[in-house]
Amino acid sequence: MSVEQTGERGPVRGWVGGQGRAGERGRGPDDLLPLVAVGDHRAFEDLYGMVSGPVYGLVRRVLRDPAQSEEVAQETLLEVWRTAGRFDPRRGSALAWILTLAHRRAVDRVRSARSAADREARVGGQAEGPAFDQVAEAVEGRLEREWVRGCLTRLTELQRQSVTLAYYEGYSYREVAHRLAVPLGTVKTRMRDGLTRLRECLGAAV
């Protein structure tokens, strides 16, 4: 399976800047994933270069523990290799799909860890902490972080907390409702509104 074929596929949808930049061959995850799905190892290597940072960073944001994060990130990327054929571009970008796999694995792990007794102890108080300190050393994606940070401040407090507790801390919306002492329906709405506003704000950056 040749990977070196000319890849004049044009600009990559939804993929700009930071470490997500498409490779010199001009291909992004959306181009590479279908190649991976047919067993193209070179494409997988390129894809790894593009997505390992976001995958690892996200997993570590949720899990905190570097060793566990590495394990989960590895499992995720191998799952990408294994199940690339399931990716359906009609349902979203390749990166979104990959990050969904990563997030689910991380969240599965953090939820089962939490249900083991330390539910309250582990998080008490830190849930509202800054979402970015953990990865401050990451040089890449700094601009991206600034944008997101800026956009997060434009959400209402409840929207921001609903979104970040779910995405960065791995809480289900029920848990978020419980922690914030608001009705379930309110949390669902805030999650949607918060993400919508975030996307609108961030859209300007793309």
Binding site: G14, G18, Q19, G20, S52, G53, P54, V55, Y56, G57, L58, R60, R61, P66, E70, A73, G92, S93, L95, A96, L99, T100, A102, H103, A131, F132, Q134, V135, E137, A138, V139, E140, G141, E144, R145, W147, V148, R149, V163, T164, Y167, Y168, R192, L195, T196, L198, R199, L202
Partner: peptide
């Protein structure tokens, strides 16, 4: 909405070991 989540993820990207 998933694109918003992607941005949240990319904002915490960190070099993998």
């Amino acid at each position: 909405l998933a694109q918003g989540a992607v941005r949240l993820a990319r904002a915490v990207a960190a070099p993998a070991p």
